[in-house]
Amino acid sequence: MPDPDDDAALSWGDAGDPSHVDGARPVRPRGEASGALADDEDGRADVARASSAGLVGLGILAGAYLLYTVGWVLSVVQDPFTLADPLAQVMATVGDVLAVLAPALWFGTTYLLTRGRSVARFAWLIGGAVLLVPWPFVLGGLS
């Protein structure tokens, strides 16, 4: 016969529970802050639902961009070069570094500049996922 207190660990308790902690209130995207949603309760639910679906999508895209970064690192490492012109050599090296940073720069720029505009955010992120494929790695892997 277990101690009845053991069962307490299996329930969520209620708001009256002294250990109850309220979840963070969903933050409304800036564009919707003007109160277009009259019903606060419904509005909050909508935003919460949208942002959780959005978060999953954002996570998937972030993962793809991370893989792209790895792909670009491998692409650049696979192809060492020496150019006669020192300026050309420096600029080509800068280009390699920029190529590695490109997925992070695209993701970060899109994220920062599309706050509250999730359609634009996903359009730009998907566009970037098409544009930034590390082709040198993909094609190099085949040959």
């Binding site: 920029l98 490109a102 544009l131 930034l132 494929v133 082709w135 040198p136 094609l139 190099g140």
Partner: peptide, 27 residues
Amino acid sequence: WQRALLLLAGLAVVAVVTLSLTAYVRA
């Protein structure tokens, strides 16, 4: 700073496009 960030990201895109086209031609 946002203008500068966009132009920097664009520069990285150009680098990516150049390397991708080079790989495409080599293939």
